[in-house]
Design a protein around this nucleic acid. Structure first.
Length: 269
DNA sequence: GCGACAG
DNA sequence: ATCTTGTCGC
């Protein structure tokens, strides 16, 4: 799949002002409502999926094609390796990779300009057309409502959601308890740090996909938010349905594993 | 100046 | 993201 909006492709050589300006434009065209044809309830994982060998069944089925995206960094720290794993009906139907030089350092709020290029390159190597992208990082939970998931989703104009392990900004509607029960979710609202929308707007959720039955230790929730063409509520629903027994939703977990398997497999270090 | 920050 | 073995808990 290729970019539909080339003018929005993240360019690492832009100045900080230009990057932030581009993000405002992206947030302006992003759709934070359900605007897709597939049935979100058809995306479900009750058990873990086996990553298997590289080539897999490239046969097309019926259900929505969901693609997980994640990055790893080559040991020189100057190159990002992006991995995409496409799933349909609980099976891996395709996977793709790309390695690109890292042009800028990690800057909170500007992550897409560091990793976006590698992700778009990996997506261009995909042979199937995903109905939904599950990106590692924030979507609407972002200072200008244009996090990595939103940026990527808008550029290729495909429904996308963001899954982060930490909260970038925003305020929980109620304090996140030390221990959230599996299935629980708490809205994340925009606050003064989110400069593109009214405070109080629900921009995502803290979602508990898994929790230990008992004990002193507990698993932290995930922070999920709409990327593009998906509402905050549906985003939380989908992430909850994608938990195959692990904290991370299956698309993300598989892309995660595929990325560092490919990394240590020896992508020219 | 202080605080705060995805991967 | 990444550096990294053992270890605490069920």
């Amino acid at each position: 799949m290729e970019p539909v909006c080339p003018e929005f492709v993240p360019d690492p050589s832009l100045s900080r002002e230009e990057m932030e300006s581009l993000q405002r434009e992206i947030a302006d065209v992003a759709v934070f409502e359900d605007a897709f044809a597939f049935d979100p309830a058809a995306i479900e994982f009750d058990s873990p999926v086996d990553l298997g060998d590289d080539d897999q069944h490239r046969l097309t089925g019926d259900g929505p094609i969901v693609a997980g995206v994640d990055q790893a960094f080559l040991d020189d720290g100057d190159r990002a390796l992006s991995a995409v794993v496409a799933l349909q009906d609980g099976r891996i139907v395709d996977r793709a990779y790309a390695v690109l030089d890292t042009e800028i350092p990690y800057i909170p709020g500007l992550l897409s300009f560091r990793e976006g290029g590698a992700i778009l390159a990996a997506l261009s190597n995909l042979t199937v057309e995903p109905d939904l992208l599950v990106v590692d990082g924030s979507g609407r939970i972002h200072f200008r409502e244009a996090g990595l998931a939103t940026h990527i989703g808008v550029v290729v104009d495909v429904p996308a959601i963001g899954v982060a392990k930490n909260l970038l900004c925003g305020t929980p509607a109620e304090p996140i308890p030390d221990r959230m029960e599996a299935g629980a979710r708490i809205p994340i609202e925009a606050d003064d740090s989110v400069e593109t929308t009214e405070s109080g707007t629900v921009i995502g959720h803290a979602v508990q996909t898994r929790q230990y039955d008992s004990g002193s230790t507990s698993i932290n929730p995930l922070y999920v938010s709409p990327g593009h063409r998906v509402s905050a509520e549906t985003t939380a629903d989908i992430v909850a349905q994608c938990a195959g027994g692990y904290k991370l939703p299956e698309p993300t977990r598989l892309a995660d594993r595929a990325a560092d398997r490919q990394k240590r497999a020896g992508s020219p270090d």
